[in-house]
């Protein structure tokens, strides 16, 4: 029997306990810290917005954001859910947003339930810069393009930007599964 085959047989026959021991020796997974923020923004075409956002920190650095937004107005309204990813855990973010758009608000006489409500899909990119020592305040600026598939002609694409401020109210940890 060649030494190579003997070596392989020995490796296969080795007790599994050694693997268990190695796993036990690993440090426990660091929990994900989630910060809940609330704030608002200005911009166009949604000139005003309020936002509630959760920012998911890995090793103390933000990596993902999930938020809900309401952008009320006297004409174009948007209710949306957005997600964002921070490449390299940086201040830069990119992400999608699903919008329920009202191209005339329900309280206007021009509102028509069948024609005024549309779904839109946005692609967003921007920066979210933490401010202060505690980094609880976050200044954000972003650009987005919204596609409204059911709104042909001039309203099928909208461009926009936002500049806003949020403040982190609550932090909590979520255990990280390995």
């Amino acid at each position: 029997m060649s030494p190579l085959v003997l070596c392989l047989a020995a490796a296969l026959a080795a007790p599994k306990v050694s693997n268990v021991n190695r796993r036990v020796e690993e440090p426990p997974a660091e929990p994900i810290r989630v910060r809940l923020e609330v704030g608002g923004h200005l911009g166009f075409p949604h000139w005003l917005g309020v936002v509630a956002r959760s920012t998911w920190h890995f090793a103390e650095k933000p990596r993902f954001d999930l938020d809900v937004q309401w952008e009320p107005s006297n004409y174009l309204q948007s209710y949306s859910v957005g997600g964002a990813w921070r490449p390299l855990d940086s201040i830069v973010y990119v992400g999608p947003r699903l919008r329920w758009l009202q191209f005339v608000p329900p309280w206007s006489r021009a509102y028509d339930a069948a024609g005024s409500n549309k779904l839109g899909l946005s692609a967003e990119a921007g920066v979210r810069v933490p401010l202060g020592a505690e980094k609880r305040a976050v200044l954000g600026a972003g650009l987005f393009a919204t596609w409204v598939p059911a709104q042909p002609a001039n309203l099928s694409f909208l461009f926009g930007l936002t500049v806003g401020l949020t403040y982190g109210l609550v932090d909590f940890d979520v255990p990280q599964a390995r």
């Binding site: 075409p45 006297n74 174009l76 393009a145 001039n154 099928s156 694409f157 461009f159 926009g160």
Partner: peptide
């Protein structure tokens, strides 16, 4: 059925218009 927005690309013109309508009467 589709307005010609002239020198403005349609998404820009529409976004500007909707902003103006949203901010006042």
């Amino acid at each position: 059925l589709e307005i010609h927005t002239g020198g403005f690309p349609a998404p820009v013109a529409s976004s500007l218009g909707l902003t103006a309508c949203s901010m006042g009467d």
